[in-house]
Every structure is written in C-alpha cells, then in structure tokens.
Nucleic acid binder design. Sequence first.
RNA 1: GUGGAUGUAGCUCAAUGGUAGAGUACUGGAUUGUGAUUCCAGGCGUUGUGGGUUCGAGUCCCAUCAUCCACCCCA
Length: 415
Amino acid sequence: MKSIPGMQDILPGEVEAWQKIEAFARDFFARYHYQEIRTPLLETTDLFVRGIGSETGVVQKEMYTFDDKGGDSVTLRPEGTASVIRAYIEHHLAHADPVTKLFYLGAMFRYERPQKGRLRQFHQLGCELIGSPSPHADAEVIQLLDGFVRGLGLSDFKLEINSLGCLKAECRPTYLKKVKTYFEGIASKLCADCQRKVTTNPLRILDCKVEACKKLANSAPLILEHQCRECAQHFEKVENNLKHYRIQYFVNQRIVRGLDYYDRTAFELTSDKLGSQNAFAGGGRYSGLVKSLGGADVTGVGFAIGLERLVMLLEGTFVPAKSITIYLAALGENAYAKILELAQNLRAEGFNCEMDYEEKSLKSQLRRADKLKCSHVIILGDDEIQKGEAQVKDFKTQAQSHIPFPQLISHFKSL
RNA sequence: GUGGAUGUAGCUCAAUGGUAGAGUACUGGAUUGUGAUUCCAGGCGUUGUGGGUUCGAGUCCCAUCAUCCACCCCA
C-alpha cells in the first residue's frame, strides 16, 4: 500500500516545523487583527468556476471534481480565497465592520504532475482583507507577509510586485490588445508554446523561459506604462508605503497571476532555492470577486503562502525547544513497579517521561535514554527503594544526585 | 498531457554477464547497577514488477509500474 501520488505524509521530525509555522501564524496574524476561518474542503464546482475563472488552467484541468451521490458537481478546493469570500457573503461578515480580516490554513488540491515543490495535496496559509479599496490595505498585507516570513527567520528571498491594471476599457483590456497585437506581429519568431499563447494567453509570453522569447518580450508593451490613471496612482501609493515600511522590493512587470480574479496590485515572494517552482507566496487585489459570487461590490486583497515550499526554505532552522525529558530506568521488579508510579505522578505535573517496557539491562535503558535525547534519568534499583530515594542523573553534566521520592517533583520543578 | 533520469538491506549507496556487498541504523555483549566514543558478535534482501536473450542476468533487450526533475501552470 502506498499513498496516492502527490499526496504526502508529514512525519514526526517534519511535523514540528509545521507546528511552529502554524503557532507563529496564529500569533502574528492576530497582531494585525486577523481572525481564523475554517471552510469546508469540498465546495460546489460552480464556486471555483465563477471565482477563479473558467478559462484558467486550474479550472480547466487541475480540479478534483466529481458528482456526489445526489448528483451535484462538487470540487475539492484548489485554493482558499473563493471559499473564504463565499463564507464572507453567506454569513454577512461585513455587518460587523466595513473591513473584514480573515486568515486560513489548510489543505488544497490540484490534479497536476507532481514535482519539486508541487504536490496534488498541498497546504496554504492565506489571508484576506476584504472591504477596503485603499492602497494602504495592499501595502499592509504585503508588510504582513514580509514580516511573517522574516519572523520565522527567513531572509533570503525576494519580494516582487506589479500592477495588473483594472477592467476599465482604457486600462487592462486596451493593454491586452496591444500585447496581443505586438506578439501577433512576431509570432513566427516565438517558441511553439508561445505561438499557442498568442491567442490563448498573451501575457504568459512575458514569463517564457526560452531565450528568444525573453528577448522579444523585453520590447513588448509594459503594463505600468499602459494602465489607467487611477491604477497608476494606486500603485504609486502602494510603493510609497512599502518605502515607508523600509521593505525591499522589486518591480517585476512580468508577474502575471494565474487566477482571473486579480487586478491592480500583484506580488510574489520568490527564492532561488526552490527549483523551478520558485514562488512560495503570492497574492494581490481582487475587485470583482465578491460581486461575482453574489456579494456586495466590495474589493479585497490577500495572499497565500505555499507551506510545503516555506518548510523547504526553513529546513534546518528549526531547533526543538529545550525541555526536561525524564527517562525512568529500573532494575528489578520492585523498582519497575515504583517507576510506574513515579512516571504517572511526574506526567500529571506536566513532565515528559519515557521508560522501557521490556525490563532490559540498565545499560540498554541508558543507551535508549541517550538516543531519545532525554535530559535526565531516574535510576532505581533495590538499594534506592530501600533508602526511599531515587538517583537522578543529569545527562548533560553527568552529575548524579540522590533525591528522596517525595521531593522528586519539586526537584524537577526547580530546574 | 509531454520530455529526461532513476529504481539493490529500514536509510545512503557499491557490485568487467559468473556465489548480492559496504557504511549507517537496529539487537546483544566487552566480569556485579551507568549512555552518546571504541571493540566484538548477530539478523538483514522476491535486486520495483512481468517477459525475453544466455550454460548463467542486479548487470543486456522489451514491456509495465513507481519515484524524481523539467515543460504546461501555479503556492
């Protein structure tokens, strides 16, 4: 038996890093007044088709979609934003305050070919700030993201931002036409993939890794020079705030988000240590999403962090917290009976205790205590039982002391 | 969906077509009840699976499956 391809177990030894990230997220997001929301893994297929966009790669070929027993088409969520917005609308969360700040943490599913940093079940940590069109909101969300990953100890990454313009006729639509016209004129010089993209998704050509395409893309029209006045001003204010925050960023006009709902500000965190899938977080503003899912005409901004990718970057930085772990070693039946009692009492007081179940030799018990990285060993034999005290050995200093049984708990508490 | 690479002990990897090995990990021991160093001993395998060539296949050929990497796309 094996797990399904692209779906991985997170094993002891790995899970600690995840717990650290999760605990820090709950603490850090709360500082910005975000509240956690948990939405179902399964939603109606229509939610994602309307939310993400029917022409996107995700919806076209990557969703785990099936009919349930009632005949309804349902889908395992491929991302978090659509579900959060659905819940936001369904439960009238806007009524409490014009601005709603939510974060989520959980598994997402996309049917893709697995590779480095890409799985079919993967995990995202994301947040949504809904209800404010202000560039201050964009900038704070970016600062939150930057501060969060730095708070985890990460510094070797790159923040890239771009503006995608808006849906007004003179903004992105006009720009798209220009890009298309430009690439149509030179289509024969592009790689096979890009020739196809000229009609399907011309913006993606800007992202191509083939040298010839890169060169041609360099002289393609740029969004920042073609977006409307309002979008330009919005972007400028976002940049100003980032400078205020003293956050280092790079404007990358080739950032093209893959989900249809994004407009205006778009951003990514990238690292060159992740292989080909070099973005470990991405986000941006979405102005039409809430309305298109049946809500009010409000706009939001948010991001999602790919947790597997983040864990890869944090590998090695996680140091387990130092704690007292006591190994109880017994020699003989009387002593073994006594350590059962001692362990029960110590555990009730909050100490981590481990012992041997097979009543092996003292040597093998100590060997195991060392292997399990226990900080202290309680050694108990007939002598100690008679004297009513335990030998307590500090594994680091090798110091050994005799502690009467009634004082054991206070002894460890005083450490 | 497309392309490339790789499948041998729990893990990391060896083995000109000729008896499947090492390191590590594991278990036990090195005089009475003291670990991680050292020394000794012990078990470790359907060589991914199924065919084929051969006196003989881990090795060569075909197929199949799995994994990894990359494309597409994204976190």
